[in-house]
């Protein structure tokens, strides 16, 4: 069964160190001023990488049944639907917040 994967201590420490490193990078990158949309893209990109590392190796999704990974992805897909469709409204209004 896939449910009982045991990681070695060394491996877990490696994952932890990578995450610390990425945290440092995401802070350090703000010291060099990246132009407007790209700073957000980079910051979110690093956060996504970190989240994937945590979910794959700390939460064992990498070794687990596919269904759990599917659930995880499903929740993110529905979040994206939520924000995506809401933005269709909020970004394209003539008046950002309607006045009554």
């Amino acid at each position: 069964m896939s449910g009982h994967h045991i990681s070695s201590a060394k491996f877990l420490w490696g994952v932890g160190t990578t995450l610390f490193l990425l945290t440092f990078i995401t802070v350090a990158i703000t010291w060099i001023a990246i132009p407007a949309p790209w700073n957000v893209v980079v910051a979110i990109g690093i956060a996504v990488v970190k989240a994937i590392i945590v979910s794959a190796f700390f939460m064992n999704l990498y070794w687990d049944t596919k269904f759990h990974a599917m659930l995880f992805v499903l929740s993110i897909v529905f979040f994206l639907l939520f924000i995506g469709i809401t933005l269709l409204d909020t970004l394209y209004r003539t008046d950002p917040i309607p006045t009554f």
Partner: peptide
């Protein structure tokens, strides 16, 4: 396996729970 799947389903609800706040943030 059942308990673990239960937790994963619960985590789905957590993500969408916080998701609402992220939507407000992004808007």
């Amino acid at each position: 396996e059942a308990s673990k799947m239960g937790m994963w389903v619960f985590l789905v609800t957590e993500i969408l729970f916080f998701g609402g706040l992220f939507v407000a943030y992004i808007a």
